[in-house]
Amino acid sequence: MRLATAVMLVVAVLTGAILLGGLWLDTRESADARCLAAEIPAGVAVSEVALISAEATAWPVGRRCEWRAASGDGVVLTQTGWPRTIGFAVVGALSACVAILGMRRRRPAAIAPLAVCLVVYGLAVFWAG
């Protein structure tokens, strides 16, 4: 295995662990509980029924909370996970480049970082349901 593939494999595994760890932190008791435990955003009605819905999301990999607006009309949305998801997408794109270059040079091991990225994202999509 060449150095570039080995480095990308380590980076893909670490980024995947960060992505799945962040999803776990965002939804560990339930998405509802995590929304209520997080800081309530400005413009949200202060009441026990202010949270309309909460769910784990696959893109970005995180949690989406929908709140009743204090003004009485409309909703306020909060979404977690954008920095992790963008970082993971960059690593996935770099892994795809390494895989393409490796396949052109007949190095099948070069596909390993891309495979890790695909498996991790598949797990996140399954988890977010």
Rank of each mutant, 00 (worst) to 15 (best):
V61R: 02
S53I: 08
C117Y: 08
D32N: 03
P108V: 02
C117T: 08
R107H: 08
A89D: 01
L101K: 11
R68M: 10
A109D: 15
I18V: 06
V98R: 11
L3W: 02
L19R: 12
T85I: 01
A110Y: 01
A115K: 02
A89Q: 02
E48P: 00
V119R: 08
V46C: 07
A6H: 10
V13A: 15
G22R: 07
V75R: 07
Q79L: 15
S47W: 00
E39T: 11
G92K: 06
M103S: 09
W24D: 08
C35G: 12
W82L: 13
P113H: 11
D73K: 15
D73P: 11
G16W: 09
A89W: 00
C117I: 06
A58E: 01
G102N: 06
L123T: 15
A69H: 10
L118N: 03
V98L: 04
G62T: 12
G81T: 13
W67Q: 13
G102W: 03
V49C: 04
V75I: 15
G16A: 12
G43N: 07
A89L: 09
G92S: 06
P41Y: 06
V90T: 05
P113Y: 05
A70F: 08
P83H: 04
G129Q: 06
T78A: 13
T15V: 12
A4S: 13
A17G: 10
L114C: 02
M103N: 07
V76I: 13
W67V: 14
T27S: 04
T27N: 03
P108W: 00
L9Q: 11
I111R: 12
T78G: 15
E55H: 10
A31Q: 06
G81E: 12
A12Q: 04
V49A: 14
I52W: 00
L25C: 09
M1C: 15
R107C: 02
R64S: 07
S30H: 02
S71Y: 00
V98S: 05
L9R: 15
V13H: 13
P41W: 05
I111A: 10
A58I: 05
G81L: 14
A89G: 08
A109M: 13
A124G: 03
V75S: 15
W59Q: 03
P41M: 07
V49W: 00
S53Q: 12
A50G: 14
L23M: 14
G92M: 09
R64K: 11
T15P: 00
S53R: 09
E39Q: 13
A42P: 03
A69L: 14
A128H: 11
G74Y: 03
T85E: 01
S53A: 12
R84Y: 01
R107G: 03
I86R: 00
L36W: 06
L3C: 08
